[in-house]
């Protein structure tokens, strides 16, 4: 169970963790905690899986990679077979089943942007199905605050 201090950490530290010699000491001050307490609590929340990560969130595109959201309308009687063909491609980073005529949604991530179209072509050839590509045209700034 999360106590009030855990919640304060989760709510207060989703960004802005300092880059300095003693960052936990610095962050602990603003949260009104001891440095060692903050380290121990983050470690515990990581272990319990309440936090999936602690550290820098990298923007893979800024590092030169390319991403593209794709969707397919997969007939129910071919679902498992097609999903397997799609997932075999190592460029498929995640893949979700969703409730819609377009029922398979996956993200392609490649270090070389030109690979995106090639992989889409391969998946279409292997499955005989259309791949709808939804490349990002504009990304809006989000506040992204999850309240614990």
């Amino acid at each position: 169970m999360l106590d009030a201090t855990d919640r304060k950490i989760i709510n207060g530290l989703q960004g802005g963790f300092p880059v300095c010699e003693r960052p936990f000491a610095e962050a602990a001050k603003t949260l009104d905690l001891e440095e060692s307490d903050l380290v121990a609590r983050i470690a515990r929340l990581r272990e319990e899986g309440v936090l999936s990560r602690f550290g820098p969130m990298y923007n893979a595109e800024a590092m030169g990679g390319a991403f593209c959201l794709c969707a397919m309308a997969v007939p129910h009687d071919r679902f498992d077979e097609v999903v397997e063909l799609v997932n075999t491609h190592e460029e498929v980073a995640h893949n979700y089943e969703r409730v819609h005529a377009l029922n398979v949604w996956f993200v392609l991530g490649t270090e070389d942007p030109q690979r995106i179209d090639a992989v889409i072509g391969e998946i279409e050839a292997e499955t005989g199905l259309n791949v709808h590509a939804f490349p990002k045209e504009h990304e809006f700034f989000v506040r992204l605050q999850v309240d614990a």
Partner: peptide, 25 residues
């Protein structure tokens, strides 16, 4: 530290902090 700050400034790093697991919350 200098390189991390600079990656933070240029947007290579989106942010530094805790990443909550939505399902656990």
């Amino acid at each position: 530290m200098q390189r991390i700050r600079s990656m933070d400034d240029t947007g290579v790093i989106r942010r530094i902090g805790v990443v909550p697991n939505h399902y656990k919350l």
